[in-house]
Design a protein around this nucleic acid. Structure first.
Length: 348
DNA sequence: AATGTGAGCAACCGCGTCCCG
DNA sequence: GCGGGACGCGGTTGCTCACAT
């Protein structure tokens, strides 16, 4: 038996929305809100549309403060950075770009941005091929997407250079646009970032020992992260060892702005078996594939004698790793939980 | 001027997740 | 704990328009 249809397909209109339909939907939602039930909404308004269609129309087109088209270079930059980091989680990416919808970004990526990147890669390959042809030796390519090197988007009449180091790094509040790219190269920035990501520090003056490590991290983009979640009461995770008592740690529900995405535990990433669809952009990962260690799980410690071992996972992005919410704890314990320590030991 | 082709984008579809009874 | 309904997301489709032939 199949899933019940969300609406009576025979009696709903499909295809492009008319201005009248738009007006009806917009005015109703502005006056009454959605009522928390999209399915019932079209009937209330007198629209012969599926509730899902109404929702989509509102979110992607009628909602106030939406921007359409005209993506800036900075937005390109952010989209690329996030796509490379987290893949096609368009809703998460959209949350970082005020006024943009996931659909918009998805379309923009699929129709334009990806081609720019692929065009660049293909150009590089041609260049490498001709270098090989010239003297039999492959010259080092200068602008791989790695480390402090840059890559560029080729547009009709110009080439935009992007510096990989300066790619913005996924803050979970809308980015405030400045002339300078966000740069997380100091302890304060990192701390602020992690706070945005849902962690907090037990001691507001506590700064983890990152000197040196950070320099390395941001100079070559290759790093490993360990996120240690501890309760300030009795439970303690220290390196890979955990006090089993009462921590039911971390995981699930990446807390984006109204968005959630599946836990990294459910989408294991390893350097040998990377599950994301890369749409021909695998070259981005060739040298930049990174191991990150996560310590955290939805399981209680008491359920596993070797909790730390079984819950040390390899993921590929430090900011995903950082986005661990301490969950499944009583509110009281939850409040005691802090993101105490993180580090970026380099793995090679 | 007519036709073909491809890009861009709005909308649809199906599935996984969440929530509530 | 389970099941059903609603929501939200990402992939895909199909329409429109601009440009090339």
């Amino acid at each position: 038996m199949g899933r019940a249809p969300c609406c009576d397909k025979a009696n709903v209109k499909k295809g492009p929305w008319s201005p009248e339909e738009d007006a009806k939907l917009k005015s109703y939602i502005q006056k009454h809100g959605t009522g928390g039930n999209w399915i019932a909404l079209p009937q209330k308004i007198g629209l012969k549309r599926c509730g899902k269609s109404c929702r989509l129309r509102w979110l992607n087109y009628l909602r106030p403060n939406l921007k359409h088209g005209g993506f800036s270079e900075e937005e390109d930059n952010i989209i690329c950075s996030l796509y490379i980091s987290i893949g096609s989680r368009w809703s998460v990416i959209a949350a970082q770009l005020p006024g943009r919808t996931d659909n918009d970004i998805k379309n923009y990526w699929n129709t334009r941005l990806k081609k720019k990147l692929l065009g660049k890669h293909s150009k590089e390959q041609q260049q490498a091929h001709s270098n090989r042809g010239n003297n039999g030796v492959v010259k080092q390519e200068s602008n791989r997407v790695s480390g402090s090197e840059s890559f560029s988007f080729v547009q009709e009449n110009s080439t935009h250079e992007y510096n990989w180091q300066q790619m913005p790094m996924l803050p979970l509040q809308p980015l405030t646009y400045t002339n300078q790219s966000p740069c997380f190269n100091d302890q304060h920035s990192i701390k602020k970032l992690l706070i945005n990501l849902g962690g907090r520090f037990s001691d507001d003056n506590y700064y983890p020992p990152l000197d040196g490590l950070l320099n390395h991290q941001f100079s070559n983009g290759i790093y490993q992260e360990q996120v240690h979640v501890v309760s300030s009461s009795s439970a303690c995770i220290s390196n890979n060892n955990i006090n089993k008592s009462e921590v039911q740690c971390a995981h699930n529900n990446y807390q984006g702005r109204g968005s959630t995405f599946t836990s990294p535990n459910e989408e294991m990433v390893s350097t040998t078996n990377y599950p994301q669809r890369l749409d021909g952009l695998e070259f981005f990962y060739e040298e930049d594939m990174v191991n990150y260690k996560i310590i955290g799980s939805s399981r209680t410690c008491s359920q596993s004698s070797n909790w730390a071992e079984t819950n040390t996972r390899i993921y590929h992005h430090p900011l995903i790793a950082s986005n661990y919410q301490i969950q499944g704890l009583s509110q009281e314990t939850q409040q005691e939980c802090v993101l105490q320590e993180f580090s970026y030991p380099v793995v090679q």
